[in-house]
Design a protein around this nucleic acid. Sequence first.
DNA 1: ACCCTACTGGCAAACGTTTGTCACCGCGTC
DNA 2: GACGCGGTGACAAACGTTTGCCAGTAGGGT
Lengths: 339, 339
Amino acid sequence: MSRPTLADVAARAGVAISTASRALHRPGRIRAETAARVRAAADELGYVPSAAARQLHRSSAGAVALVVPDLTNPFFMALVRGSTRLLRAHDVVQVVADVEEEPESEEQTLAALAGRVDGMLLAASRLDAATLSTWSRRVPLVAVNHDAGDPEVPTVTIGTQGVEEAVEHLAGLGHRHLAYASGPATSWADARRRTAVVETCARLGVRLTDLGHHPPRRDAGAAAADAVLRSGATAVLTFNDLQAFGVLDRLASRGVQVPEDVSVIGHDDIFGADLTSPALTTVTVPAEELGARAAARLLGAVGLATAAPSAPPAATGPASTGPDRLATHLTVRGSTAPV
Amino acid sequence: MSRPTLADVAARAGVAISTASRALHRPGRIRAETAARVRAAADELGYVPSAAARQLHRSSAGAVALVVPDLTNPFFMALVRGSTRLLRAHDVVQVVADVEEEPESEEQTLAALAGRVDGMLLAASRLDAATLSTWSRRVPLVAVNHDAGDPEVPTVTIGTQGVEEAVEHLAGLGHRHLAYASGPATSWADARRRTAVVETCARLGVRLTDLGHHPPRRDAGAAAADAVLRSGATAVLTFNDLQAFGVLDRLASRGVQVPEDVSVIGHDDIFGADLTSPALTTVTVPAEELGARAAARLLGAVGLATAAPSAPPAATGPASTGPDRLATHLTVRGSTAPV
DNA sequence: ACCCTACTGGCAAACGTTTGTCACCGCGTC
DNA sequence: GACGCGGTGACAAACGTTTGCCAGTAGGGT
């Protein structure tokens, strides 16, 4: 009582398996009347070709995986959307996997998915550089916003201009003591972002307090907010907007005015950043473009880029061109003000 | 220069293919020394077993697909998270696909995915009942929040208690004229929700204006807000929170006070619903549980439910028990007030 | 009457894996 | 010394599909 196979369809139509296969995929190759009979049989049986068998014959799966640390983070949703669009245009199936910020879960997912796709997009991987390099030797992959330092691992990242602008913006408002709330210790992006903050502060002669690592979640913002108040800083930059939301929540419930008492700057400009009150000043990241760019790189690497994308003709452009470091910029809203 | 196969590994280790296979998957069956040699060879070659070939031999893919209309909608993120958790606990790979609210894209995705998974979860499908029934005959699927009316199609839905409570809440605050902003015309959930509003209004003797269909996006809320003001209603219920956010945006920019001038109630209680100012009164939906329940149903249907889930032992429970209609309730925040 | 061509449909191999079955080896036992 | 036995490894079949190749047929031109 398993799913019907091509053999069942062929039997019901009274033809050979090969004829059935051609009737379904080689228009013109089989007489119209025969082909119609085969299609009818397939329809009645509810036949669905087994992708596994097909994939076994061709050597390609026609699918790529996108692995993200946390699907409930709006930032990654936007990234997903970007890669989805591009991949669909090239008739490549995308499978998305959420690893819930767990490195073990991430590696487990890689193992489970590696054999069923032609390549993988690893967004903000929490894996260390060595593990990433190892996997890169096993399966074509593109690291998004995580540079393993291994030139063999193709990488698409974002620049730190936005972070520098953020610090400059605060300094320009007269802030002389900032605080930075770090993200996960295993996040490459956090290390990079923190370095940019440190250097810019040094350059501008602004004092900086490092608040330590906090999970990239909204509820982690409470601890960060308390740390800010203890530090005496007049402004805080957080690793991402989710944390910034939490900081805003906590400051409000402690009666601290934003931006009058403390200025807050997030990172990513995710969905909701303009909903808070005050609306969040944050670093805008072209998440959708990031996803699309990474997907394009991967397609180029695995040779899946169709010459003529089926959907939008010019918009997506050649699959593997363009810079692999995207620019970011500060978007000023209401959560920052002069001291 | 293709990916290495088991044959390559076996050759390098100087054993037969079958020996290599057993060395990797049947601990004890092969002498430890030989097995170690095979594992070393596999490692050096970066061998990754082809899921396709494996799947061909067993008849199961060990994977299910989750198809959602819009991944950037926080509601579906929560749903994804719920099914991810349950599926991971049963060692089933989940692939998520976003169809961007397009019925054609949805059917195309079904076709592309049907052959590579054991079953599918269709969340808030925009497909009509007949098409859904047809696909249900082709591949095991569970419809989430979409009842095709076909008893052959397993379905998990949410109740309308929350919507009724919302109307009662408004009536209790003295509102005598409500408006309802519908979602997509092809949404079963919208039809159901609207009916609940209509009936409850009739029961309570409250006047209701139907504002017509609006896309379930934030930007569509502007048109809905304008329609509300034209209608003269003192309160509006929207199909979902995204629309409610847009309504809030628009009313604010037109200088209309919420909740003093107009009360607003959304639906879903998505991420961000408590961030708006005023915070949104909305119908809370157990999205995560909805995803988990649907996944459990599917596993039960395709016989993939492992007797002993690998991760959380009791929490997930037996795969196919529990009601298939989940309760919702109103969560009152700041966007509703007496007339 | 013959051959060439165009068209249709079938045979069988191949893709990479898992696993039932079997052969072989060395050992101890009678 | 023959036999049985446990342990180890190889052979080959099977999963469902695609496709190169070939055979058969019909029709038309010479």
